[in-house]
Amino acid sequence: MVAENAEILVRFEEVQKSYDGEVLVVKNLNLDISKGEFLTMLGPSGSGKTTCLMMLAGFETATHGKIILDGESINNVPPHKRDIGMVFQNYALFPHMTVAENLAYPLVVRKMSKADIETRVERALDMVQLGGFAGRRPAQLSGGQAQRVAVARALVFEPKLVLMDEPLGALDKQLREQMQYEIKHIHDNLGVTVVYVTHDQSEALTMSDRVAVFNDGVIQQLAPPDQLYELPENSFVAQFIGENNKLSGKVTGVNGATCTVEVDGSGEVKAVPVNIDGIGSRSSLSLRPERVMVNPSDGVCPNVFDARVEELIYLGDHMRTRVSVCGHDDFIVKVPNSAGHVHLRPGETVKVGWQAEDCRALDA
């Protein structure tokens, strides 16, 4: 986690980007990234996250505003003079060069001595556990090995900042998860600043110190992974991060730390008022599936409803249970597979309940 008084390495000030002079792809972006931080820009396609990364790299120019790196404006600095390492989804390795020559290339361009280059290449290969691969060509590497070489090449000249654009998108699930941990460990060991772009929320939650969730060119929420998941500030973040139950209704009362929402024709729900317009306004309730209890003891939950079990899917450590409740047929409950937990059957009616503090009243 980045310290409160950490030094700022990257600053976006009122940055806008338009490709046609009319539609803004990035709208008034203000964002500080601290030295040593791992910040992920997360969002669906077209949300503006990759455009922000490309402006920082110098491959796109900002239509308005300033981008500052280490105290200096870089709006007019060409990409090769920004001292930034880049890792792309397609690796972008030179096929005619060996692994060692690929790693040496950024050092040769910087006119380093031969001895320095050899030392740094060896150290970079050890860092990504590819010590014996120096003489191979990219075509002789697996996808995971090629991606490690791409990471090593981005780090070999010890840049101030490393940018990663969907770097694990081409890998299979198991390898992708393994590489997430490896990149995170390299970041922890080197203390380099990383700005990472992905549309994969589990990747963002696993690796990041903070996550900036983008939608429609605007950061919807900027927070550490646990806060994004547990405390979403609006409906978009609640739906985009993790699995989420959404119930719609009208706010009928607000009493300090709780509010009451009349769920369309199905009864009242007590919730935490987070992003509502007051009594009479529409709201959508956000509730994580693991926070819902099946057949709770009397008096334990302020919110208890009858639910019909529609579908059970066995997922090893829990049973993903789809129920029909409050007029919604796609309400999900995660029932742990542990001793003492109920065995449900499709078609039966059960009680489901949850605490008011686990349910967030958000924008409609």
Rank of each mutant, 00 (worst) to 15 (best):
G340W: 04
R288H: 02
R345N: 14
N303W: 09
I332G: 06
C301V: 03
G242R: 02
L205V: 08
I332L: 08
A307D: 01
T206H: 12
P289S: 06
S281F: 07
A204G: 05
S286T: 04
E230Q: 14
L315T: 02
V213I: 04
R291I: 08
E311N: 07
V213T: 07
D264Y: 11
G242N: 05
V269F: 05
V218I: 14
V304W: 01
E203F: 05
F240W: 08
Y229F: 06
A307L: 00
Q221S: 03
V325P: 00
D277F: 11
L228E: 01
H318A: 13
N244F: 13
T258A: 14
A204Q: 05
S248C: 12
V342P: 06
G253T: 04
L287A: 02
S283R: 06
A307C: 10
N255H: 13
G299V: 11
G340I: 05
Q227H: 14
S208G: 07
D306M: 12
V304M: 02
G280D: 02
P346M: 06
V309T: 08
V237R: 00
N255D: 13
Q221R: 03
G249W: 01
R282L: 10
T321P: 06
E311W: 04
T258G: 13
I219V: 13
L222D: 04
V300H: 14
